[in-house]
Write a protein that binds this DNA or RNA. Structure first.
Lengths: 129, 129
DNA sequence: TCGCTAACGATAATCGTTATCGTTAGCGTT
DNA sequence: AACGCTAACGATAACGATTATCGTTAGCGA
């Protein structure tokens, strides 16, 4: 079996991602860490993001084009702002029993789900009116 | 203003997409139509899919990697099978008031939403057990 | 300290999608 | 029915995000 080794790069990536709430892209994380770790490679960022996602320590948000990442693994939803392009968290008290409802309606096995809202974020919806 | 002209290619793409339920990729549609329209270009497929989506006649499913398309524009959800990679429809009677709940919890404007379930499709979930 | 190899950095390759550009064909007007 | 305008086309180059390759580095158990 393959033993996973510890790495400073992965620590830094996870720590950086968990300390922010803007759902950065791989490149965002790369430029954010580059000053602290000058030798860092973009490939390393991608590699570790994939590994962390596989370990269930982060979430990948496949919002169409460029992938974004989220260090908050508690169930919550996202909204993509049509104006500024940002991704924002939406926390719902009730999960609306979505998986339960879907399991009733679908003859397969449902493991998880993600919800992506589209609209305007607080500041952009104020600007337009 | 720009007047939209009629085109045989767009007709064929829309018709093909609406007659199937497997959520094909742009390339799937291209190869499906190529025998009937030998001169068809993949760029034309992408162009028309984008236009049809903009006109609200089809839906684009941004399931992470390659985009898939759906000719059914009635609100419903999708499941990606972890085993075979296929995308399947999930119709819920109740929409669970998702947009309403989210609007209460989010200080912006919510226009639409999409839900993507992950799990195993009927046939794959039977094979594994 | 040694040896194995997971993880790294640099960079080439891949792949889905979009942009460019010369040509074709809808369609309103003569 | 021919004319002219330009949307849409087909072919292909370009792009951008992601992944693969490969020689080097560095965890970590012996």
């Amino acid at each position: 079996m393959q033993v996973q080794r510890h790495s400073k790069q992965r620590d830094a990536i996870l720590e950086n991602l968990c300390s922010r709430y803007d759902h950065p892209t791989a490149e965002d994380l790369y430029f954010s860490l580059k000053p602290r770790i000058p030798a860092l490679s973009l490939a390393t960022v991608y590699r570790n993001l994939a590994q962390l996602e596989g370990d269930g320590k982060i979430i990948k948000i496949g919002s169409g084009g460029t992938a974004r990442y989220d260090g908050n693994i508690n169930l919550h939803y996202h909204l993509t702002c049509l104006d500024c392009g940002g991704v924002f968290d939406i926390f719902l008290d009730t999960d609306c029993g979505l998986c339960k409802e879907a399991s009733k309606a679908f003859d397969g096995r449902i493991l998880s789900h993600s919800v992506l809202f589209t609209g305007y974020c607080p500041s952009c919806s104020k600007q337009v009116g």
